[in-house]
Design a binder for these strands. Structure first.
Lengths: 194, 194
DNA sequence: CATGTCGATAAACCCGGGTTAATGTCGCAA
DNA sequence: TTGCGACATTAACCCGGGTTTATCGACATG
């Protein structure tokens, strides 16, 4: 089931129909604010967004990026009704469709197809988180950066260095040093190979 | 549904009955070896185990601990049939029950109760991983250690310093220094308060 | 008893990355 | 044109943690 088919299916479902809302968010605006409670499942139709934490020292750390045709939300809010520990902020103008989690859950309970979809979705999320845990645990900042360039090649052109740095857990200054190291190693490598 | 009821329910299920295996593993033995393919869902009935990566430099990083009455396995193996990127190693003697993932999935497909159980289980796993991601991204090693002491208070007495260090992503030497800092701060604090 | 092993700690040294502040470079608006 | 603000980079300095090596105690096992 592709993204558009999923949305059509959900909006047509009797458990959901009428409870969905569409919204437009301008670049830099927040879809969810850290501390807010938002039980919606959010379908990003267009744009680019980040989930990020702001620490009490005021530093921002990005936990994930979302491009058009992806599904977002705070599990902590949806499942536990607790305030979100992070924000969702638009890096570009965003169009979203929001559906309350309990409606989605109800629709899924009556549809093996939907249930299977969200079951798989959860498992995909788990796999991604496992990968990220591995990278923080076992890799250096430079390795994490170089993997990022490969794994996120499709969105790298839409990001600033500061955003990439924040995602891999270092400061923009440290990332700049890493990029310098890589460039120097590259030119040495080329020279050495000649 | 508690752990024992779950196991009884699964073993009685027509999709599973007969495919389950029990096994005993001695302390230090491996239930899953990094690189192996093991599609089983593993129910730890007794003992204590760790999931860990060994990097190509030979360093071991622990990604999680499991106590008696928990459910383990490599999603990567179960879902994708790929070799496990980590090992499961016994920190104490362990008794386990192993059931092939596809049997469990089949049983769940025919039982709303089971499906709901595993759906919730996945969501709980996601919440834990999200917490861990937050801690690596936003907290210092010392903060991670102090949170660990609280969150894992029930198993701390069963672990060595080296295991705790490996879990929070530092060397045992660094952890020793952190413990020294904390002790010094404590005694200063007490002295200052008097 | 002697030896070996493991866990925890310590000292010395090095390096990656954080911090602060300065510089350069765009693009944009007054 | 000037000036301003966002972004990337650099230098200088500091500190946390990695690395290596050594010490010490607690427990085996010979």
């Amino acid at each position: 089931m592709d993204f558009c088919a999923l949305i059509d299916r959900l909006c047509a479902d009797p458990a959901i129909a009428g409870s969905e809302r569409t919204a437009h968010y301008a670049k830099s605006s927040q879809i969810i604010r850290q501390g807010d409670i938002c039980r919606d499942v959010i379908f990003l139709q267009n744009g680019l967004a980040q989930m990020s934490y702001v620490t009490f020292e005021g530093k921002e750390w990005i936990k994930s990026f979302f491009v058009e045709e992806s599904v977002m939300g705070s599990r902590r809010c949806q499942l536990l009704g607790e305030p979100s520990t992070f924000s969702i902020i638009c890096l570009e103008d965003c169009d979203v469709l929001a559906i309350p989690y309990d409606r989605v859950r109800k629709a899924a309970a009556n549809s093996p197809t939907l249930l299977a979809f969200f079951f798989d979705f959860n498992e995909q999320v788990s796999l991604r988180k496992e990968k990220r845990e591995y990278e923080f645990l076992c890799l250096s900042a430079q390795d994490r950066y170089q993997r990022f360039l490969v794994d996120y090649a499709h969105i790298v052109p839409r990001l600033t260095q500061a955003q990439i740095a924040s995602f891999i857990g270092i400061t923009p200054i440290a990332l700049s040093r890493i990029r310098k190291r890589i460039n120097q190693a590259d030119s040495l490598g080329v020279a050495g190979a000649q």
